[in-house]
Design a protein around this nucleic acid. Structure first.
Lengths: 251, 251
DNA sequence: CGGAATGTTGACCACTGTCAAGAGCGGTGG
DNA sequence: CCACCGCTCTTGACAGTGGTCAACATTCCG
């Protein structure tokens, strides 16, 4: 099974999205109702499949209801770079919608549930709901801030710092979204994902992971990574969550 | 002289900004008037000075009227990464405005002229001018697209490709903004800037520049770089302007 | 004219990539 | 339930791109 569609009434993922926006500023009742009125058509997709392909001209954007996804870009010869991770509650391709053409692909890292949000709905949010417009602006600008941090990460940090930083970000975001109970959570990233996110090779990404495991910072569990020593990890990464903006809790 | 302020009526830089937005979609007369009504207070700043500092809580955002600027981030120990370049006609820190806190700095690469746009004005554009809102959304999303390309650039391209790519982008953007007559234009980037934009050291960035000059792709002229062989340069970079979105002319 | 910042070059080094082989794991079918 | 197959992960040996250090040449300005 690659993708099933079934009519849904409401989905906890929608609540995550609403709460995410609420963390960015006050949400009027009327605006909340507009969001909750969204008719959810849930699509399930297996891990490692594309949700959207580079070059697509999407007619809707995707709300990630459950699971993990990433955006990536590739070069002619196959070199691949993950440019961001996404967790439940994220909307993922406003850009494709307003710019017409996807300049990157989106792939599922785990089995995911996504809901397509029609173009018209997004435009309605942005043009007829100033409150939502404002919150979506903030969301998009935070997205951009994260990209900037990634440019820094990949451009100026060592392999070790990069890996640690990517892990820290994912944990901090999951935590602030309320998706996990504490820092000792599991992350569904393979070595290959880690390599593509950090601009390293799989082999070297793995060396770093082994080393950090030996030091007791993280623990490898199959396709999964768990944080063991959060403080140590943030120190190894030079992680400062300020770039995530919504007063990201961390310590 | 570090920064002078003088009341201006109108400035060609404002026209560049308006034309930039027009390239992103139709601009209603009323919206154009709203833009042109902007009371310009021009501020001149020398090369290599900060326009905005990381951590600032800006009360206005900056319209770059003339010259070149960049946004950058730094690590504790001083490692520095340029995350984008800006040319006349760009607005540069919507993010600081809507998010409250600058997660990056902005510096002048050449002597520049900037105009502070008050927070209230930007909010007016975004909340009371749906047409402008739409165009500014596109502009912000293109910004984000460029960041993604930079993550790819720094993460997966070789030193040579990176340098070439950064140069190609700057030329393509200058050209599409009508700032330069053709591809054989001058770019005001020092080796240090190039290094910080590509995640290389000054020494290695310089090696690459020398090599590309020897091959007749570019020409070094003091603090300045000029493109000699555009096609060759785009080939060396693997440059595809699709990520710049507004049907960026190139060939 | 002089001093400082920037650019240039060379020698050497190391972080990360490449290649390759083997181990572990999970899924599938007999 | 077991055997097999394919993927991902691991590890080691070796290579190379790009970093470091250091000296010297320029250019830019005051």
């Amino acid at each position: 099974m690659t993708a099933t569609t079934h009519a849904g009434v409401t989905h906890p993922g929608l609540g995550l999205f609403v709460r995410k926006l609420e963390r960015l500023g006050p949400l009027a009742d009327e605006d909340r109702r507009a969001l909750e009125a969204l008719p959810l058509r849930v699509r399930r997709v297996d891990a490692d499949r594309d949700l959207v392909r580079e070059g697509d001209r999407p007619s809707h954007c995707l709300l990630l209801l459950d699971g993990f996804a990433c955006r990536y870009k590739t070069l002619e010869d196959g070199r691949r770079q993950i440019v961001s991770f996404h967790i439940a509650g994220d909307i993922m391709d406003l850009s494709g919608l307003l710019l017409g053409r996807m300049d990157h692909g989106i792939a599922a890292l785990t089995p995911v549930e996504v809901a397509p949000v029609p173009s018209a709905t997004v435009l309605d949010w942005v043009e007829r709901h100033p409150g939502l417009n404002r919150l979506l602006w903030r969301d998009a600008l935070i997205d951009a801030s994260i990209f900037r941090e990634w440019v820094l990460n990949v451009g100026r940090r060592s392999a070790r710092e990069r890996v640690a930083h990517v892990v820290c970000e994912l944990v901090a975001r999951s935590l602030s979204a309320g998706l996990v109970p504490d820092y000792r959570c599991e992350l569904p990233v393979t070595r290959a994902d880690l390599a593509d996110a950090t601009g390293l090779t799989v082999v070297h990404a793995n060396r770093v992971v082994q080393e950090m495991q030996a030091e007791g910072l993280i623990e490898v569990r199959g396709r999964t990574l768990a944080v063991v020593d959060w403080r140590g990890l943030t120190r190894a990464a030079g992680f400062d969550p300020a770039y995530l903006h919504p007063f990201a809790a961390a310590a």
